Amino acid sequence: MLVQAWYLSNSKCHRFWGNPICVGIYTPIDLPIDGLDFFQSPSHVVFWLFSLMIATLQGLRFHWAKGIDDWLIPPESVVRALMVVAFYVVIGIESQYFIPSLELIVTFSRTATHWFLTWSMVFIGLLLGVQSVQILKQRKLLQKTAQLLGNMAEWRMGSHVVDTALNNPAGLAFQKCDRRILFMDIRGFTSWCEKTSPETVAEVLDEYYRCVEPAAAKFQPLIITFTGDEIMGIYATPQQGIAAAKSMSKAALEMLELYGIGAGCGVHCGSVIEGLFGGADVRTYTVIGDVVNTAKRL
């Protein structure tokens, strides 16, 4: 059971082959003791039968028929509950020195207490199955919401800030850092906007961002922000900052020359104050200092 639980706890495991591990280990251990009589024992038959039923249902859920969890989880829960009843029946009959047969099993199950036990377990299995479906739906919704919030946080502040917030919240406090600050903006953007429709301006800006961002992201920026036609990138090393500036300039100029405009880029290095700035409702992670001002003017 421990080996099976260890294997099934791995997210990459195959559920069909993982569920019979327990009975698969038990069989070769007990087979030399019982010989071929092993397969004549009803408890062993029940063990194998229910293990394969659960393995099949889990195989369908996780591998062969994904997306129908609502229909597979309740039957799987009922099968698990009925396994207890099946073991109880065959062991109860064997304890009275009878050889289990279909007739004895039916007779044994017809008594009031056994009938009550059987249908109670079916009912409990269904309830647990429905609860599992609800929990699964809630988990998927939470995962979807968390992913959306994570994406929105990264779009606003970048993956570096989000990772820091999750793993080292103290790292968001104001601190003096040695950073490489990069600024890029479109030259003549204001005068070009005056002669261009707002729809075209929005489309060009969007295309500009989509062309330049991959070039900036290639060199592991700590933060990238877009403000109008201005792009700011913060890098950890001079090599990253300069390489990013060259790559971003090339991408921007190739795209903007189609519209008769260009872009300027500047990089400056030095000490800045870095941290989470803002009020109670609106905050942003950024850097301030003379190095930032100089980079922007360059």
Rank of each mutant, 00 (worst) to 15 (best):
F277I: 14
N167M: 05
T27W: 15
D178Y: 08
L127H: 02
S132P: 02
R297A: 08
S191I: 12
V106M: 13
Y209L: 06
S11V: 05
N10E: 11
A65T: 02
A280K: 07
G278K: 11
G18D: 07
L31Y: 13
E257H: 13
L102I: 12
N167A: 05
Q4M: 15
E94Y: 13
T111I: 09
Y26N: 14
E203P: 01
N168L: 09
Q147S: 11
E254H: 10
A263E: 06
C193Y: 05
Y235A: 06
G188P: 04
I73V: 14
W6I: 15
E203N: 04
Q175W: 07
A202D: 03
L222M: 15
G266L: 02
Q138D: 08
Q240R: 05
G92V: 03
K296Q: 12
Q220R: 13
Q131M: 11
L31N: 04
R61D: 09
M255D: 01
D185Y: 08
A81E: 05
L57Y: 06
L258F: 01
F183V: 00
L128Q: 11
L172C: 08
M121N: 07
H160W: 15
A5V: 06
E194K: 05
L52W: 11
C13K: 05
K176G: 10
A245V: 11
D229L: 05
I29S: 08
T27V: 15
F47S: 15
V204A: 01
R15F: 02
C211T: 00
A243W: 02
G171T: 02
G270T: 15
S95M: 14
I231D: 01
F123W: 10
I25W: 10
I93G: 05
M232L: 14
G278Y: 07
Y97C: 05
V204Q: 02
Y7M: 09
V287W: 03
I231W: 00
K195V: 14
L72K: 09
I224L: 03
N19R: 06
Q239L: 10
L102K: 10
G158M: 04
F16N: 12
A215M: 07
I33D: 01
F108M: 04
K140S: 12
Q240V: 00
Q40I: 00
F226L: 04
P214M: 10
T118K: 04
I105Q: 06
S249I: 01
E103D: 14
Y208D: 02
E274T: 13
K296P: 00
G150C: 08
K66L: 09
P198E: 01
R210M: 07
G262Q: 10
